[in-house]
C-alpha cells in the first residue's frame, strides 16, 4: 500500500530564492501530521506543492503512489487565498464549486455545519475574514477529500470557529483521511497528531510532536 504522501527531494524556487529545498518524507494513509515552524520558513509553500497547486522546481511528489497532479480530485487544500467569488453569495459559491467539481456533499448541510446558514444568501463580499474561512471549510466538507492540507486553519476564527476546526480534525481522523495541519497553535493540535514536521528556512525535517504523542 503506497503511502498517502511521498516527497522526494522536493524543492521550490521563487525567482532565485529557494523557498523550499530537499524535502523528503512520507506520510502514511490515515495519519494526521502537524507542520510547525517560524513564519516564512516554507510551510505554505510545502502544503501548496503537496496539493499540486505549485509545481516543484526540483524533486517530485507522489500521492497514493501516483503523480500529485493526477490526484487533485482527492485533495482538499485550505490556503490563505480562499478562492471565493465576491459577487456571488456563499451558497452560490458552493453550488458553483459543487457543479464544476461534481462534488458529492449537500450544500445546505455544509453551510449549516460551518454555521453560515443564516448568511448563506448574502454576497461573500459582505463576509468577514472568519466567515470566509468557514465557507472555505464548507467547500472542503462538500468535497470530502481523502487528503486534507490545512494551512493555519485556526487563523481569523473566533473561539466557536476554532472549536469547529477541532471537531473537523476529529471527524477527518475518524474517517481515516490523511491530514497535514500547518499551525502555530501547536498545543491545541498536538494530541491528535501521529507525527510532526518542522520547517525552518526551507528545510523540512521529521520531529516528534511537541508535548505528548509519539
Amino acid at each position: 500500500m503506497p503511502p498517502a504522501i511521498a516527497a522526494t527531494e522536493v524543492g521550490r524556487r521563487f525567482a532565485g530564492r529557494w523557498a523550499l529545498r530537499g524535502a523528503s518524507f512520507e506520510v502514511g494513509e490515515g495519519h494526521t501530521v502537524l507542520v510547525y515552524g517560524p513564519n516564512g520558513a516554507g510551510k505554505t509553500t510545502l502544503l501548496r506543492v503537496l496539493a499540486s497547486a505549485l509545481e516543484p522546481t526540483s524533486g517530485s511528489v507522489s500521492l497514493y503512489g501516483q503523480p500529485a497532479i493526477s490526484q487533485r480530485a482527492r485533495i482538499g487544500l485550505l490556503s490563505h487565498a480562499d478562492g471565493h467569488y465576491d459577487d456571488l453569495s456563499g451558497a452560490d459559491n458552493l453550488r458553483v464549486a459543487s457543479r464544476l467539481g461534481r462534488l458529492a456533499g449537500d450544500v445546505e448541510a455544509a453551510l449549516e455545519r460551518v454555521g453560515l446558514a443564516q448568511r448563506a444568501q448574502d454576497l461573500v463580499r459582505t463576509y468577514s475574514a472568519g466567515m470566509r474561512k468557514r465557507l472555505a471549510f464548507a467547500r472542503l466538507l462538500l468535497k470530502a477529500p481523502d487528503l486534507v492540507l490545512l494551512d493555519e486553519p485556526y487563523a481569523a476564527l473566533d473561539t466557536e470557529g476554532q472549536g469547529l476546526v477541532d471537531e473537523l480534525l476529529a471527524e477527518l481522523r475518524a474517517r481515516g483521511a490523511t491530514v497535514m495541519v500547518s499551525t502555530h497553535q501547536v498545543a491545541r493540535v498536538a494530541p491528535r497528531c501521529d507525527g510532526a514536521l518542522v520547517v525552518e528556512n526551507g528545510r523540512v525535517s521529521r520531529s516528534t510532536v511537541p508535548g505528548d504523542g509519539p
Binding site: R72, A81, H84, G101, R139
Partner: peptide, 8 residues
C-alpha cells in the same frame, strides 16, 4: 487555483 484544484 480553486477551480484548478477541484479539478477543472
Amino acid at each position: 487555483e480553486m477551480l484548478l484544484l477541484l479539478p477543472v
